[in-house]
Amino acid sequence: MTTPAIADPRTRYSRRKATRGNYELYSWVFMRASGAILIILIFGHLFVNLMVGKGVHAIDFAFVGGKWSNPVWQIWDLLMLWLAMIHGTNGVRTVINDYAQRDLLRLWLKILLYAATIVVVTLGTLVIFTFEPCHAGADPSTVASFCQAR
């Protein structure tokens, strides 16, 4: 005679079973960490571009050329691009999840959001690294002053 298999009356409680990984936790941590770094990056960006000198009136192609000839500003803008886009995309993802109640609408809004993010981040990254401040054949008055020396 075989004894019937009786389940262990006290199977260990596992928190992990009910969840689909720690994705939302990482997202929560990322929003706070990236937010803190973005405050420094964006306040610095706004101060240099809007407060110093003639402010918004100083911004033109030569101004951007001057900034991106310095690797510090290249890395500054690259970090700002990636962190702000991921922070913003994650925020809008939360808003879509909260207000788009139909499954298919929610799915398509998020596909659209992620597609826009990938295109914009890729484009921005390429621009920062392939930018040519002394644009070939450009009107000399439109490029940075250091271009004349070449």
């Binding site: 192609f61 914009v120 921005g124 621009v127």
Partner: peptide, 11 residues
Amino acid sequence: ILDTALVRVSP
């Protein structure tokens, strides 16, 4: 980001 990307088009 899109308007800044125009630096890659022309001054």
